[in-house]
Nucleic acid binder design. Structure first.
Lengths: 339, 339
DNA sequence: AAACTTCTCGCAAACGCTTTCGAAATTTGG
DNA sequence: CCAAATTTCGAAAGCGTTTGCGAGAAGTTT
């Protein structure tokens, strides 16, 4: 298994010689091509194993087709979206031994451009762009020589293929769960107003409520995605004197702040008020008290789908547009129905 | 800048022709070699620019030297260590246009082995292994054809070079800060006992206290790294009736739990008790109430150093052993001295 | 047994670039 | 103004694979 004593890595020609065949035959044997006698194939395979031969992917990539690499270009490495997506990408790709170049553009357009060049120069088989927001963004380049898929974010060029999260559906199912749990006076504390994530989620919430003949106890509150905003908004809400029995938060971070604020004011969760988040950021949701019900955005799956689509694209598929993936609710303690 | 209308990517020979020189001259011109007339160089460079020429890194890698790629092999992608380290690696590497293959072994040894092969097959210029614990681990392979550096974790082969965190120093400075802030009755709630991180940090704490003629109010408490453990341990501590005016926690997560627990019991932070964490996991530390003082482990710097060492190693440096990087305290509200 | 097929295999070209080395052009020295 | 030193350039040989195609060997069909 381990290289016996090595000196310099064995090459195809070495295993060919050891098996008493030519390099081309060895190549065919190892790559499961037709045109080679089973017995010969055996010999070559043994030789390769004995020598600990590892093909040179660089040379292989030169000849023609695939290099067996894809680029993941993100500007949200520190955020919590890129990572699960990346893992999903690896899941889907791993099966076919392709490695991923991870590039962090750090939100810098020039740097992004350079990285794209770098990726193209490496002849990656494809590029997956994962953004930090679901909002449309300009494409990373026009007629690039490799297929590009946008994940989480979406390209504003309709010819591109983007895979994103169905924010409206996420809001919808979150509200649905609250109503199904017997809540009817629901407040909605959202994130940054300009983000499409906020807008779509709110739309989903309102659609569900409308379906059930309900409406929010007051207009959605917009702020940012932070715990601090959650605390502040909850305080404002309480001060307002409005009655409510549930708070649907735009993110788990916000929910966490809301929870703290409520606790501090002696409002019991979930008995007095149910609280629900969106994101399923596990460290936050599982460790809050009570544990937070939320909507899992299925980011890892999103990564898998993106990788699959990339694969399809490099096989000629011309799919375009935006594909939305549904989230699924995760029920913990913060929304347990009242007795 | 953008490819005019492309068809197939321009090659070196295309820019050579356009500049009226041979491919070899073009190559030298673009690579800043000697042996080429400044005027010619100019012409070649313009031609390259006009054509939007991007060299084929694959072909370039074939010939000889560098491929301009490094592998980062981790089993802690979901954790909070790998990422900052990765960013540091990118920082240090970026300057010389090298891209990183990110591989997640998912804690599976066989998978790790396969990934190493895959990386070697890609002829990476080096591999950085980042582990999820600071404890020693077996090396990823014996006489690999590329330099390997261990980051955060360390190899148990003394011939390898590892860059890790100075846990003892982290504990030391944390305790120092508490004592300097006027606390003398310090309790220590640590993480998992078997982890060297717990042990070393505790050692550092005890060393500082000894220096100051103090000791912990009771033996260190070991559990796990979770918020839940922090809450439980704080409760136990309070129940015990022991007096204390500060709690030094093994991690920010633990500290966060401690904070909740204290708050719930009506113990004021920092006026009654100061609380300090270790990690500087910003989302947690900044959003706790009060904001959490902690020790920044400088992971990004660790990544930078690792990449630098890798570079040196591939230039022949034979450094070995473990290099420890100091942490630095980050002061927020949870340790403000009493009036 | 001659003429075809079918299997196996190896030769050689190709992939796109770098690099060595010698030739040609230019400059320098005497 | 000629020989020698210096610059500047291009032809060609790789780098380690894959692949198209033709050549033998072996097996089939008349």
């Amino acid at each position: 298994m381990a290289d016996a004593f090595s000196g310099t890595a064995p090459q195809l020609i070495d295993v060919a010689r050891r098996a008493g065949v030519s390099a081309s035959t060895a190549s065919k044997a190892l790559n499961a091509k037709a045109d080679v006698n089973p017995a010969t194939r055996q010999r070559v395979e043994s030789a390769a194993r004995e020598l600990g031969y590892v093909p040179n992917a660089i040379a292989r990539g030169l000849t023609g087709g695939r290099t067996g690499t894809v680029g993941v270009l993100t500007s949200d490495l520190e955020g919590r979206f890129a990572l699960p997506i990346l893992m999903g990408v690896e899941d889907a790709l791993g099966i076919d031994r392709v490695l991923t170049f991870l590039c962090d553009a750090r939100g810098d357009e020039a740097r992004e451009k350079r990285l794209v060049d770098e990726l193209v120069s490496r002849r990656v088989d494809g590029i997956i762009v994962v953004g930090k927001q679901t909002d449309p963004r300009p494409p990373i380049g026009r007629n690039l020589p490799v297929p590009v898929i946008y994940a989480y974010c979406m390209s504003d060029d309709p010819a591109d293929l983007s895979i994103s999260v169905d924010n409206a559906q996420a809001g919808f199912v979150a509200a649905q769960h609250l109503v199904d749990s017997g809540r009817s006076k629901i407040a909605h504390i959202s994130g940054e107003a300009p983000h499409s994530a906020s807008q779509r989620r709110t739309e989903g919430v309102q659609k569900l409520l409308a379906n059930r003949g309900l409406e929010l106890v007051q207009p959605p509150m917009y702020g940012d995605w932070s715990e601090g905003w959650g605390r502040a908004a909850a305080a404002i809400l309480v001060q307002s004197g409005k009655e409510f029995d549930a708070i649907l938060c735009g993110s788990d971070q916000i929910a966490r702040g809301v929870l703290d604020s409520l606790l501090e004011r002696g409002i019991a969760v979930p008995s007095d008020v149910a609280v629900m988040g969106i994101d399923n950021w596990v460290v936050l949701a599982e460790n809050s008290r009570p544990a937070l019900s939320t909507v899992d955005l299925q980011l890892q799956k999103l990564g898998r789908v993106a990788a699959t689509r990339l694969f399809e694209a490099s096989n000629g598929s011309k799919a375009a547009g935006v594909e939305y993936l549904p989230g699924s609710i995760v029920i913990r303690d913060s929304t347990i129905p009242r007795l």
